[in-house]
Computed example of a mutant assay.
Amino acid sequence: MANNQMELNFPKGGVFLVIIAVAAIILFSKSTVTIGPGEGGVIFETLGDGINTDKSYGEGFHIVAPWNKMIVRKIRQQSISDEMNVLSVNGLEVKVNGTIWYKPEFENLGLLIKTKGEDYERELLDPAINAAARSVVGRYTPEQLYSSKRDVIEQEILDEVQTVLKDQYLIVKRVLVEDVKLPPTIRTAIETKLKQEQESLEYEFRLAKAKKEAERQKIDAEGKAIANKILSASLTDKILQEKGIEATLELSKSPNSKVVLIGSGKSGMPIILGNQ
């Protein structure tokens, strides 16, 4: 009994075409890069001069040569926070907690990475922040750092950081000093002093308010006295008698009164009797 054998017949060169197709797929997958939202990229040319500083790539799908590499970095605004030990103007050590907002220049991303490396925050930003913080904080006393100078210090640190990073392809937007930690004894002394100053200001305010009220009452009393003096001087006996007669006549017209004139009162004023 003869055995039937099935033979698979591939087209001539079929295996070679499959190999080429698989290789093409692999090369294509390695040659495509998708840059996400808020990111940018630069090409590292393996067979060339390294980082290509002529062009930065934005969000979206990109094709690069398989022997090259796309370096992708965030280009949107970012923030880093740090705690620094610095000295005040009188040599007291304080801890400053701060946050800084920054972003790389998109059009110069290649130059930034080429000159400072991919970890440019550690290489460039951290030293600038620490140097600026030490320089600025060293101008103030602990009391100024703790209370009234916070916004001024933030602006001065920002100005110094921006000066240091000028032409370094890194933009610093804002500096926030979140907390200044002093030794407990110094902090307690400052808080006590501030409380006493506040109480003193409140006491001075109450005194000033009471003084103004006394002055107001004095002026009011003087005004009334002058008005009464003028009124008394203008009311002669004849005027008073005429006013009295007018009032008596008006009263006599009341339907509820029976008018009886008998003689006259003092100063010649009539007397009304018989009210019902």
Rank of each mutant, 00 (worst) to 15 (best):
Q162S: 07
I129G: 00
V152Q: 13
E213A: 10
Q5W: 10
D220T: 10
G50P: 05
Y102Q: 01
Y57N: 04
A132I: 03
L165W: 08
G98E: 03
E215L: 10
P255A: 02
A208V: 06
Q144K: 03
F44T: 00
I226M: 08
D237S: 11
A208K: 11
Q5P: 05
I153V: 15
W67N: 09
K212F: 14
L17K: 11
R122S: 14
K12F: 13
Q78P: 06
G60H: 11
N275Y: 04
K173V: 14
Y203F: 15
Q217T: 04
A21Y: 11
Y146R: 08
K193I: 02
T188G: 00
L47E: 11
V22C: 12
S31E: 03
L17G: 06
E222I: 10
Q196F: 04
G41I: 08
E213W: 08
F28L: 14
K195Y: 13
M70D: 02
D54I: 06
L27A: 13
I153R: 04
T99Y: 05
K224H: 07
I157D: 01
E160S: 07
Q217P: 02
S254Y: 05
L176M: 11
T163M: 12
S232N: 10
P104E: 00
L145C: 04
V18W: 14
G58H: 05
V164I: 15
V180L: 08
A208F: 10
D167N: 11
L261T: 00
E154H: 03
K114I: 10
N228W: 14
L112I: 09
I43F: 05
E118T: 13
E45M: 12
E178Y: 06
R134F: 11
I80Y: 09
T185I: 11
L124A: 01
S79W: 12
K74W: 03
A24Y: 10
